[in-house]
Simulated assay, not measured.
Amino acid sequence: MEIFIVEDDRVLQLMLKKMVERLGHHVSGTAINGSEATKEIITSTPDLLLMDIQLKDDIDGIQVVESVKKELDIPVIYITGNSDFKFQERANSFGYIDYLIKPISFETLTKSISKVNGIG
């Protein structure tokens, strides 16, 4: 499975990449901000997005998903450091596979990815 990672913390992004590869999947790309993510996701057409919600520019992860879903139907797993319910309510508008609160374990990510088309 081709997985695109959007995470503005480079260390966490690298950890997610290593977890994804350990599961036998390929990281099709990474981005640290919303504008970059929107462009790259549309051109790389991944099978799954691992999406941080709060990013370091004016576009948050939920807005990225909203933009991308206009062109592509890609499942999303949100991985966020913010447990504020208002973000989860906004994310519900566009649907998601899972909504994980950081820090996440390898086992948690494994279970979430396995929910995508029943594979993992």
Rank of each mutant, 00 (worst) to 15 (best):
M1P: 03
E2S: 06
F4E: 03
I5N: 00
V6E: 01
E7M: 11
V11E: 15
V11M: 14
L12S: 15
L12N: 13
L14T: 14
M15F: 15
M15Y: 10
L16F: 11
L16E: 03
M19F: 14
M19K: 08
E21L: 05
R22N: 10
R22A: 08
R22M: 09
L23N: 01
H25K: 09
H26S: 06
V27L: 09
G29M: 09
T30I: 11
T30Q: 11
A31C: 06
A31W: 07
A31D: 02
A31F: 06
N33T: 05
G34I: 02
G34V: 03
G34P: 04
S35V: 00
S35I: 02
E36W: 01
A37N: 02
A37G: 04
A37C: 04
T38L: 06
K39T: 08
E40G: 08
E40M: 08
I42E: 03
I42W: 11
T43F: 12
T43L: 11
T43A: 11
T43K: 13
T45C: 12
D47M: 07
D47G: 06
L48H: 01
L49M: 11
L50K: 02
M51I: 03
M51P: 03
I53F: 10
I53C: 02
Q54E: 14
Q54R: 13
L55A: 06
K56A: 09
K56F: 11
D57S: 09
D57A: 04
D58F: 14
D58A: 15
I59Q: 04
I62Q: 02
I62W: 07
I62G: 01
Q63K: 12
V64G: 01
V64D: 00
V65Q: 06
E66N: 04
S67N: 10
V68E: 00
V68I: 12
K70G: 08
E71F: 12
E71I: 15
L72K: 15
V76P: 01
I77D: 00
I77A: 02
Y78K: 00
Y78V: 05
I79D: 08
I79M: 12
T80Y: 12
N82W: 12
N82H: 14
S83T: 03
S83P: 09
F85W: 07
F85D: 07
F87M: 07
F87E: 05
Q88C: 10
E89F: 03
R90D: 01
A91E: 07
A91Q: 10
N92Q: 06
N92Y: 04
S93M: 05
Y96R: 04
I97F: 06
I97N: 02
I97T: 09
I97C: 00
D98M: 11
D98S: 14
L100N: 10
L100P: 10
I101V: 15
I101F: 15
I101A: 10
K102E: 05
P103S: 15
P103Y: 14
P103K: 15
I104N: 06
I104G: 04
S105I: 15
S105H: 10
E107Y: 15
L109Q: 01
S112R: 05
I113K: 01
S114G: 09
K115L: 14
K115P: 09
K115Y: 12
G118M: 14
